[in-house]
Amino acid sequence: MAYYETTQDYINHHLTNARMCSTDEGIVFNKACEDVGFWVWHIDTIGWSAFIGISFLFLFWRVGKKATTGVPTKTQAFVEMVVEFVDDSVKSSFHGSSKLIAPLALTIFVWVLLMNLTDLLPVDLFPWIAGMIGQYGFGMDPKDVYMKIVPTTDINTTFALSIGVFILIIFYSLKIKGIKGFTKELTMQPLNHWAFIPFNFVIETVTLLARPLSLSLRLFGNLYASELIFILIATIGYLQLPLHFAWSVFHILVLPLQAFIFMMLTIVYLSLACEEH
């Protein structure tokens, strides 16, 4: 905490994303983006999300390419276990017919899980590395260099994932039920009478829009709170090590659970979208 005048400065620094935006002066970064508004890129979120996703795809591709029918390696056994777990979850919860759902569920579960697990890394390590690069490589003040490595603590990530799921919900609803069936679902439920169409439409629209909203906010809220607690633990000095270890052990259970919930809700929502009745 040598760079920071107060504990609040330290916390704010660690909870701030590295930002990039375009202004009349050209491409600018971080504090210069504060007054830009909506069109700001969180480059650390984008970079770490892409790196984790590509690493996951490469690992599974390599394991699949080298898979054998004999005694599997530990990596192959782990990948097979994950695939079977997701496949069983899809078979038990998805009642439609689609070749997309199982790969989608696998991608969501593993990608979200890996992004969540970065929360267990030391909170000072990557901000310190980024600060050193900024200071000695570009002559910047380390306090003006930001680096958040947990993509799911950025609401832009969780909203992007949930919006993708929402688009698929609409797509499958229209594909399976047609425009007429989907419209009837929004207007004739829960009260099946023409006089209640306005009431039904409001209720069903709110329910439909609440699905991506709840998906994104649940994941973001849990991970943001978790990261904040890790940062608070880091401010207490020599006692942080045992507390950090205890909180990490607890989160070994919580972080996979959040990925599982996101995956299962995605499967359930898409299953509901594929039901013709």
Rank of each mutant, 00 (worst) to 15 (best):
A105K: 01
P198Q: 09
H193L: 12
H95F: 05
L257C: 13
F159K: 13
S216V: 11
V90N: 00
K143R: 14
I133K: 08
T187Y: 09
K184S: 10
L208G: 01
L213V: 15
I43R: 10
S248T: 10
L57A: 15
G134D: 01
M264D: 00
M188L: 11
T68I: 11
E80Q: 14
D9K: 05
T157S: 14
W41Q: 11
M263I: 04
P122G: 06
S214A: 13
A259G: 04
S97Y: 13
Y238V: 08
I261C: 05
P190K: 06
G26R: 04
S93Y: 00
L209N: 10
A18P: 06
F159S: 14
L174Y: 12
G47M: 01
W41S: 12
A105D: 02
F260D: 05
S214R: 15
S92D: 00
L228K: 03
G26V: 06
G221M: 07
S162Q: 07
I133N: 03
I52T: 01
T7S: 15
S173A: 04
A18K: 07
T207Q: 12
S55M: 09
I101C: 00
H14N: 02
A102Y: 04
A2N: 13
P151S: 05
T152H: 01
V83N: 06
K177A: 07
S89Q: 01
K66A: 15
H13M: 07
K65Y: 15
T68C: 11
Y172G: 01
C274A: 15
A2I: 14
V40F: 00
P127A: 05
G70V: 08
I261W: 11
L15I: 13
I108W: 00
L243W: 04
F201M: 08
I170W: 09
L257E: 08
M81F: 13
S89R: 00
H14F: 05
D144P: 03
T73S: 06
K148Y: 07
T152S: 05
K175L: 15
Q240D: 03
K74N: 13
G26W: 10
F201D: 03
L168P: 01
E5P: 04
Y136P: 08
V63S: 07
V165G: 04
L243P: 07
T183A: 11
V86A: 03
L253P: 07
L191Q: 15
G221N: 02
G139D: 02
T45Q: 12
T187V: 03
P212T: 01
V83T: 08
P151W: 00
W128T: 12
L257I: 14
I261G: 06
L121Q: 05
I179K: 13
T266S: 05
I149M: 03
